[in-house]
Computed example of a mutant assay.
Amino acid sequence: MKIVHVMTDFGAIKADKEVPDNYQLQANESVTLPAIPAYAPDYQPIKVDINAADPEQMMLSQLALQQAQFQASQQKVNSQLALQLAQLTAKEAQNV
């Protein structure tokens, strides 16, 4: 089994899925992550059976999920700030 990352058209990770080793990648799928992965706000991580995972796997899964959630929230904040900046710029242009 291997993990496949499903990307948006803009390259953000939308979901992960576990597939057989002989799985053929579809469009917008990858088995590797970029150096600094960007997660879509609606990112769906793989559901892990906690009872089957060892403590190290559980910790790594929790850290990966926390990182994905943090990055998604940061992207949302960045989008909001960009929108506010665009609105202020447009308002300033009207005042000139």
Rank of each mutant, 00 (worst) to 15 (best):
A64H: 12
Q74A: 08
P41K: 04
S30A: 14
Q69A: 07
V19W: 08
E92N: 09
Q74W: 09
D49Y: 01
L63W: 04
A64Q: 11
I46V: 15
Q26A: 06
P37F: 05
I36W: 08
M58R: 15
L63Q: 13
L60Y: 07
M58W: 03
Q62C: 02
D54W: 11
N51E: 14
Q24M: 13
Q80N: 12
Y39F: 14
P41A: 03
I3P: 00
Q75G: 11
D16T: 11
N22P: 05
L85N: 14
P34S: 06
D16G: 10
P55H: 02
L65F: 05
E56C: 01
A90S: 13
Q62S: 08
A72V: 01
L83C: 08
A53N: 12
A12L: 05
E56N: 08
V48F: 05
A12W: 11
E56L: 09
E92L: 14
A82P: 02
N78G: 09
S79F: 05
Q67R: 10
Q84D: 08
L33V: 07
A52R: 14
P45V: 01
Q62R: 12
D54S: 00
Q66Y: 01
D21V: 13
Q66H: 01
T32F: 12
N51V: 04
F10K: 15
P20A: 14
S61T: 13
A38D: 06
D54Q: 12
L81H: 12
A53T: 06
L83Y: 11
S79T: 07
M59K: 10
D42S: 07
A53D: 10
P41H: 03
A12Q: 15
V19E: 07
A82E: 12
M1L: 15
L63N: 05
S30Y: 03
D49E: 15
P34K: 06
Q26T: 01
L60W: 03
V6P: 09
L81T: 03
Q75A: 14
K2P: 02
Q69C: 06
L83G: 04
D42K: 00
L25T: 07
Q94W: 09
Q57I: 05
G11T: 02
M7V: 01
M58N: 06
T89W: 11
E56Y: 01
L81F: 13
L88H: 10
I36C: 02
D54N: 15
M58P: 00
A68Y: 04
P20I: 14
K14N: 03
Y23A: 07
T89E: 14
A72H: 00
K2A: 03
A86Q: 15
Q67N: 09
D54E: 15
Q74M: 13
V96I: 10
A93K: 15
V96H: 08
